[in-house]
């Protein structure tokens, strides 16, 4: 390493990147940078590393979502337990209460931006306000995105790819309408206010627990990983008995039929691993596994024939790594893949 010490190289690489990030970057600068990169592989690897980290910084925007003030939130903002997250509450309220007219919103923002003490007082007021009225908020995710949102009552919802739900919080109950897709709910305990998820013909009622609900055309799936939830028909009608689902239950509802499977909680949790970017299959038909991948990706996999569709697969996969999945399939199964930019077709040889 005669091209300078590691620290010197890193400092230089950071300087280049910071300079390039500014407005005055010229062709001559670019040429000088390329020359520097070409001079030593050590330069290039240091540069790549910092560039990647800086690009990751873009994801800070996800953290910034909902934070309406200028400048960063106080340290530890994202670590604070939900119930002490006054800001979170403020954000939720701001998001939901601001009417479409921009006027009140900007006044609201200004009010919130005053002194910290004032914020405390205001938030106490708003907190009470939240308790006495209905707050609504709509959440949704794009294809390929997963997002965790606080609901303002201390509960959290993690939305899977291409999912949407409406949240209504009132003094008597917390109501979530799952419009499409799937969401995991971490429900804050509040015996006085049941947490109800509406999913078409069924309702799932919880007090303080963790469960997920998935709504597909014609099928509903409920996975409970903590506590107990009650599954009942939408209007509490007497013709459908309600069932109690303890942790480890996986209920599938299709048409009027309801099938409940009990499994170890750890197994049930594996069904929710998409939250961490993973898909879990165990003796799953290729048809179902592919459908799972397609929930998350724009480039769809198509299974061309019934024989291939019936193959059984297992394992953990990253849902954003379709290529690895397909590669492994080709290696281990009688399947051939035809790959183009739009889609991947799997067929028996």
């Amino acid at each position: 390493m005669n091209a300078g010490t590691r620290t010197e190289i890193e400092q230089r690489a950071a300087q280049w990147l910071a300079q390039r990030d500014g407005e005055a970057w010229s062709d001559a600068d670019e040429a000088a940078l390329q020359a520097w990169l070409a001079a030593d592989v050590a330069h290039r690897v240091a540069f790549l590393r910092l560039e990647a980290a800086w690009q990751q910084g873009e994801r800070l925007q996800a953290l910034g979502a909902g934070w309406k003030h200028s400048g960063p939130p106080p340290r530890g903002h994202w670590q604070a337990p939900p119930e002490t997250r006054r800001e979170q509450l403020l954000q939720a309220l701001e998001r939901t209460q601001a009417p479409p007219s921009g006027v009140r919103r900007s006044r609201m923002t200004r009010v919130l931006a005053v002194a910290a003490m004032l914020v405390c007082i205001v938030s106490a007021g708003l907190g009470w306000h939240a308790y006495t009225r209905v707050d609504s908020v709509s959440l949704s995710t794009r294809l390929g995105a997963i997002e965790t949102q606080s609901l303002g009552d201390g509960s959290q919802a993690t939305l899977a790819s291409d999912s949407a739900l409406d949240v209504h919080l009132s003094r008597r109950e917390r109501r979530v309408e799952l419009l499409r897709g799937e969401a995991i709910f971490d429900v804050a305990k509040d015996p006085g206010r049941p947490f109800v998820v509406d999913a078409g013909a069924r309702q799932i009622v919880a007090v303080g627990t963790r469960f997920s609900v998935r709504r597909d055309a014609g099928e509903l799936r409920v996975v409970v990983t903590e506590g107990t939830v009650r599954l009942q028909s939408a209007d509490g009608a007497a013709d459908q008995p309600s069932s109690l689902l303890p942790a480890g239950s996986v209920a599938r509802i299709e048409g009027g039929n309801e099938l409940v499977r009990s499994m170890a909680v750890a197994d049930a949790e594996q069904l929710l691993e998409w939250r961490d970017g993973l898909l879990f299959f165990h003796n799953t038909s290729l048809r179902d596994a592919v459908a799972e991948f397609n929930r998350y990706n724009t480039r769809k996999i198509v299974v061309a024939d019934a024989r291939a569709a019936e193959l059984r697969v297992g394992g953990h996969f990253r849902w954003d790594n379709v290529d690895a999945f397909v590669r492994l399939l080709e290696r281990g199964f009688p399947v051939r893949a035809e790959i183009d930019d739009q889609r991947i077709v799997l067929r028996s040889p």
């Binding site: 800070l60 953290l63 994202w78 965790t148 970017g277």
Partner: peptide, 11 residues
Amino acid sequence: CGGRQALKHLA
């Protein structure tokens, strides 16, 4: 992976 953990780590 871009999930919840990633954001926590970034924070």
